[in-house]
């Protein structure tokens, strides 16, 4: 349902504005495009957050109707039709999306994160995100997005086992969010923000794991939704992450550089 909504809204609203090849990643990075990027993200970010929130909504429903039997299809539809709205955290994130346009603390954190040097696994993560953004099908894109999670978890040393325990929830959440971005060619390049989003999410969860608190499903899903809101809810942060992604990929990616050099 949300895919259809996305397609129709975006196609109608941005057809003329993005005629000049906004599909190229660099367009998103330049400041003059922020006014155009903002409405695009304004449509996409709530859908991505709602898609992730569906994982929380589903649990709540199951618990409430423990002895009821429903058809699987009906259940799945309900998941996307407002059930997530019953989750207060997701509701707050959706309400707060409008106020994220300005510079705030979370953005400052992302700026710091942007200036750190890239490790080998980060370079590979950026390449996988690049592959996801350029993949032939939605399922293939999700394979690359899913592959990011263990790769990013590897970078967190002692917290990695706890992160991997939460991996299925992160994979499902990231895959659902990716599903909202992939169908439209204009939003597809935004898949390149996923290594940044997942790294920030892993960092949040690692802090919790390091303080000996177990990572519950809801915690993992909420952390992911929160970071999606922080990144896709703010055009400046999105542009910064896209820029970093492009720079790392262009300069350091062993896969693409070997092809360019003809190795």
């Amino acid at each position: 349902m949300y895919q259809y909504e996305l397609e129709t809204n975006l196609d109608r609203g941005f057809q003329s504005e993005f005629e000049t090849g906004v599909g190229e990643d660099r367009e998103y990075e330049s400041e003059e495009f922020f006014p155009l990027l903002a409405p695009l993200l304004g449509k996409v970010a709530p859908m991505a957050i709602k898609a992730i929130g569906g994982l929380l909504g589903r649990r709540r429903r199951r618990r409430q109707n423990e002895f009821e039997f429903e058809s699987p299809q009906g259940e799945y539809e309900a998941e996307y039709e407002g059930e997530y709205e019953s989750d207060p955290f997701i509701g707050k994130l959706l309400q707060g999306l409008g106020s994220m346009a300005g510079m705030n603390e979370s953005e400052y954190e992302f700026e710091q994160f942007e200036s750190t040097p890239a490790s080998e696994s980060e370079v590979l993560a950026e390449h996988l995100a690049h592959m996801a953004a350029n993949s032939e099908s939605e399922a293939e894109a999700e394979a690359f997005i899913g592959a990011l999670v263990p790769l990013i978890a590897r970078g967190f040393g002692a917290a990695a086992p706890s992160l991997m325990r939460a991996a299925p929830h992160l994979i499902r959440g990231a895959a659902r969010a990716a599903r909202t971005l992939y169908p439209n060619a204009r939003t597809r390049p935004l898949l390149r923000t996923f290594p940044g989003i997942l790294k920030k999410t892993a960092s949040t969860l690692a802090r919790q794991a390091n303080s000996n608190r177990p990572i519950a499903q809801s915690t993992a899903v909420k952390a992911l939704a929160g970071n999606v809101a922080q990144v896709l809810g703010n055009p400046r942060t999105t542009a910064q992450i896209m820029k970093r992604s492009r720079l790392i990929h262009a300069k350091k990616c062993p896969c693409c550089n070997s092809v360019r050099r003809g190795v």
């Binding site: 696994s121 690359f144 899913g146 592959a147 999670v149 991996a167 299925p168 990231a174």
Partner: peptide
């Protein structure tokens, strides 16, 4: 779904591969 299955397999492969 197929897409979700592929997301899990992608993760499974990067988990098990020595990189």
């Amino acid at each position: 779904s197929e897409a979700e299955a592929e997301a899990y397999i992608g993760a499974s492969i990067t988990r098990i591969m020595p990189l």
